[in-house]
Design a protein around this nucleic acid. Sequence first.
DNA 1: CGGGACGCCTGTGAGC
DNA 2: TGCTCACAGGCGTCCC
Length: 280
Amino acid sequence: MPELPEVEVTRRSVAAAVEGACITAAALGKPLRWPLGCDPDELMGRTIGALVRRGKYIWMPLSAPADRAPAGPGGLLWHLGMSGSLGWHARLPEAGPHDHFDLHTTRGALRLHDPRRFGAVVWAAGLDHEPAATLLSRLGPEPFDATLTPERFWQSLRRRRVAIKPLLLSGDIVVGAGNIYACEALFHAGIDPRLRADRISRARAERLLAEVRATLARALALGGSTLRDFKDAHGMDGAYQGQAAVYGREGQECLRCARPVRRMVQGQRSTFYCAACQRR
DNA sequence: CGGGACGCCTGTGAGC
DNA sequence: TGCTCACAGGCGTCCC
């Protein structure tokens, strides 16, 4: 589910509720992608700091517990996987079959709902401690990082021979665009998803970076995409899905040229595109 | 190292 | 109605 816009929507909708709250209990459901990495009781008595997003991860810093001197500060690294969402509850309903982690605080409770369980909540002593450090070290630059210039973006593309679509998905060159937004950005940039990255001109690379940014920014402004069940922490749906030009529109008219939108498979993922508007 | 396939899970919708 | 199959927003791991 969640690509960068959905994760950022989640971060923002959770932040105001939890920052400054103190953890009173934590409860685990079925196993997630990785184990929590600590005893849930170790989380008690810690105060939640400012939430930070990196790629599709959310880092929740936690103070050292006031009542346990030996325990140092740390934090929880959250990932929503393919089907995860976070919900904030003033009063927590009984857990359903897909609720796998509850964080009770002095102000209310944060619950991870994740039917497919590709998501995770992992303890780390800091962003520079394992396992957070390794997980985050693999990530490419943030899309809105000012140091990600068109030149730097193009130079990264020039070193890779893969098709541009799966390369965008990999997050090696820029993080944040998953299957929906990679398809959308390539459509808006007029680039064939099969075009090898090292064959993209400097001018087209600049256009692509601009469209990745514009696509992610637009989705963020619309609250993300709700395909099946994504909601923000207060249960609000996103609205971008109704704006998609190609994603999920196989057989329907291209909004630009009216020819049918096509679907193909690249790296075991669906790619939606317009054969006329997107060129090699 | 780069590139590609696989697997982790559960649910849903289409087709028979 | 009930079965089977394809497919779904991600990403770490393994193999060549």
